[in-house]
Amino acid sequence: MGFTGFPDEAFLFYEGLEADNSKTYFARHKQLYEDAVRAPMLALTDELAAEFGAAQLFRPYRDVRFSKDKSPYKTHQGAFVDLMPAIGLYVEISAAGLFTAGGVYSTASDQLARYRAAVDEDLSGKPLEAIASTLVAEGYELGGERLKTRPRGFEEDHPRIELLRHKSLYAGMRFEPEEWVHTAQVRERVERTWRACGPLVEWLCTHVRGSELPRR
């Protein structure tokens, strides 16, 4: 079956999970999750794979080992096209609607050092600044983990200090669950936003790359 949109039941499932994030609720509605959430997301990412690459669907279970929040389930379903470690394209549905994005979602110390060096250097930093400005002008939000102050070794009046504060960086757009989310138009929205995020992802793949540190 091709992708035909996300049914109402997908959003109702997550509304219920937000109200009752328990193993009992999930077990009772697991088939609904499989049919209304997971299956359409698989169909969507399968259709996008030819242009953007294969996506990995995230498991619905939260890793609560180091979290104060012990609720067992994620209140969204995400999928990620991993172009380089932690760099790629993302799509998510939740009770709030659809979210699409592209960027780097976490950085090892060597990746962060390369990112800051590239932002600092005019030859590479100015193009990133232009990419970010274009995305914001088109309605995208810039997100990611950020320092509240300047990073060590950089002055507060650096022309790209806001970008330097980022430890991770992505551009995303949110869509409320209107009627079109129940149709194949979802694919068109994701395609459009992923293409718009392409220059940012390409810059990150070129200048940040995957971590070269040995795995522990």
Rank of each mutant, 00 (worst) to 15 (best):
D63M: 05
D63Q: 02
V64S: 03
V64E: 07
R65A: 10
R65C: 11
F66K: 06
F66N: 06
F66S: 07
D69V: 14
D69G: 12
K70L: 12
K70F: 06
K70P: 03
S71G: 03
P72E: 05
Y73P: 10
K74W: 04
H76Q: 08
Q77N: 14
Q77F: 13
G78M: 09
A79F: 05
F80P: 10
L83W: 15
L83G: 09
M84F: 00
M84T: 02
A86W: 08
G88A: 13
Y90H: 15
Y90A: 14
I93T: 03
I93M: 00
S94R: 02
A96Y: 11
A96C: 09
G97V: 13
L98T: 09
T100L: 07
G102F: 05
V104H: 04
V104Y: 06
Y105C: 01
Y105S: 02
D110K: 13
Q111S: 00
Q111F: 00
L112G: 01
L112F: 09
A113C: 05
R114K: 12
Y115A: 08
Y115R: 04
Y115N: 07
A117T: 10
A117Q: 11
V119E: 09
V119K: 09
D120L: 07
D122N: 10
L123I: 10
L123S: 15
L123N: 09
L123Y: 05
S124V: 04
G125L: 10
